[in-house]
Nucleic acid binder design. Structure first.
Length: 116
RNA sequence: CGAGUGCGCCAGACAGCUGCGUGGCCCUUUGGCCCCGAGGAAAGUCCGGGCUCCACAGAGCAGGAUGCCGGAUAACGUCCGGCUAAGGUGACUUAAGGGACAGUGCAACAGAAAACGAACCGCCUGCGUUAAUGCAUGCAUUAACGCAUGGUAAGGGUGAAAAGGCGAGGUAAGAGCUCACCGCGCUUGUAGCAAUACGAGUGGCUGUACAUCCCAUGGGCUGUAAGAUCAUGUAUACUGGCGGGUCGGCGGCAGCAAUGUCGUUCGGCGAAAGGGCGGCUCGUCCGAUGUCAGGGGGUAGAUUGCUUGAGGCCGUCAGCAAUGGCGGAUUUAGAUUAAUGGCAGACACCUGGUUUACCAGGCACAGAACCCGGCUCAUAAUCCUACUGCGUUUU
RNA sequence: CGGGGUGUAGCGCAGCUUGGUAGCGCAGCAGGCUGGGGGUCUGUUGGUCGUGAGUUCAAAUCUCACCACUCCGA
C-alpha cells in the first residue's frame, strides 16, 4: 500500500464521517465516500474500546491483511474508513475477512459472487 | 527430600510462503534484490539528569519537595553499608525514622477530670452542731451532718490514652516528697567519621509533626507538537478597556506687555496608561501611525532535531558493597492516520488423557515515539547460587 | 507531552476544609385520605464511601500507590 492510498488529513476524515455512508457488521464498521480520484484511499482504526495497544494493533493488522486479500475486487475511487468493534478481540483472520466482505457487499463496493 | 529466606538469570529455538517500515543497490514504467526492524518492563508518567527555548543586576516573600547516619552517583525522592525501632524460632523482613523545652490547634462518646495542671465520690485535717458512751459535768472518744478562698492524688465504673511505670520509705492522708530499678529528654566521659552504644550526672516528662508549624537541604520555567532551517500563505478587519505627560523651539490667536491658549513629519527630559521579568513583591525594562484583551483571516508541506549513549559485555585492580579505575573486543528500530504482520509446518517446555508412543489443549505480562538513571505496578513456566537455633529420613 | 477534576443508596448530589453521628431529593416498599386511579401526607427499606496499604486510639475525610471515567492546554 503506497503513501497516497492512506488517508491522513483530518479534513478528509470529517468529510467521510459527516457526508459519507456507513454500515456495520459483526467485527467491523465501514464508512465510505466517493473521492473523485482514480485510486482508493483507506484507513484502519481501533478505538480504546477495543482494548490496550496490543489488542488495537492486532485488530488493525487483521483488518489490513483482510483488505489486502480482497483489494483487487473493490471499486476504485472511494475513501474507506474501516473501524474495529470490540468484538474483534478473539477473532481470526478468516472471520474478520468474512465480516469485511459482508459489509462491503452490502455497500455494493464489490461483486456479489466473490470467491475468497 | 520438604518448608522457607535472600541475591540473580531468562522471557523458547527452526525453516517455508506471503505482506509492511527505514536504509542501500539495480532499473528507472510498473518493479526487483540485499541488510536491519520492540521490551524487561517499551506500561504508569511518580522522581532525577542530559538536551532545548523563554526569562534572568540583585534581594525578599509565598507555595511545593526532601528529612536517622555515612558512602556511591551527572543527579535523585534511587542504590549500597551501618544505626535504631517493630515483627519472625531462624535465615531475614518492614519503617516519610529531624524537632512536641518555640508557638498554635485537636483529643468525639464515656468519664469527676482529656491539659493556663484538675477535685464528683473517697481519704485526711481543723472548726461547729447533734447523738451515744465514759466519767472528775465540761472535757475525751466514737458516729452522723454541716462548714473551710483546707490538704490530697493511694482507690473509683469510663476511655485509645488518666499526669512517666513499678516497688519501698515517708505521711494526718498523700504526693518524684525521697530512694532503687526501668522508659524518655538534656549535660557530660569513653568508643566511633557519624547516626548511635555503654557509663556518670541531671530533669520530673500525656499523645498527635502522615494537623499547622519550626529547623536543615536543594530548587527559575518549558517540554522534541521543545527548538532550527526552507517553502506555502494572508488583513491585524471588527469590538471593548486604559491612555497620549512635561520643558524648550517654531507657528497661529488674544493682549500695549508680562502672559494665556491652540497646534506640531522638531529636540530634550520623563515614565502616566498598559505590559514583560512564566507564583508574588521591591526593583528593573519596554512604552506615542500607543498598549492590552476579545476576536477575525491564512498556511499547516519538507528537511532537521533522530539516535553512539553518564551504552552494554569480558578480564583485571580498589572497595564489605553500591560503584569506580585500567585494558580488550563489541556496537545496526527510528514510524509520523503512525512499520515490526498473516498463514500453514515441525521441535522444545507445561498440563490432562493414555501409556511409552500418540492425541487434545496451553505457552505470561505486554507494543518503541527525544535520550538516559531509577521508582511503581503487570507478569506463564523453568533455572542458578547462598543460607536457615525449621521439619522428615539415612549415616 | 503536560496539567486538572470526579468516583458516597437504583439515579442525581451533600458531607472531606477543621478526622469520631454517613445525610438530602427522586425512585422502591407499607399505610392514611379516594368508590378506584392519579395526587398528596405519614412511616420505612437500602450504602464494601472506586481498590489496596500507611499515619492515628479512631479514616468517606489525612498521606502514598493503583483502577476507572472525564475535562483542559501545547
Amino acid at each position: 500500500m503506497r503513501r497516497p492510498e492512506v488517508l491522513r488529513k483530518n479534513k478528509d476524515f470529517s468529510a467521510i464521517y459527516s457526508r459519507g455512508k456507513s454500515l456495520g457488521d459483526k467485527y467491523v464498521v465501514v464508512f465510505y465516500r466517493d473521492n473523485h480520484l482514480d485510486y482508493t484511499r483507506t484507513a484502519f482504526l481501533a478505538s480504546k474500546k477495543v482494548g490496550k495497544s496490543v489488542q488495537r494493533n492486532r485488530a488493525r493488522r487483521l483488518m489490513k491483511e483482510s483488505y489486502r486479500n480482497i483489494r483487487e475486487e473493490i471499486q476504485t475511487g472511494i475513501d474507506i474508513v474501516i473501524i474495529a468493534r470490540n468484538t474483534i478481540n478473539d477473532a481470526s483472520l478468516v472471520q474478520v475477512r468474512k465480516s469485511l466482505i459482508n459489509a462491503l457487499k452490502r455497500a455494493k463496493l464489490i461483486e456479489e459472487n466473490i470467491k475468497v
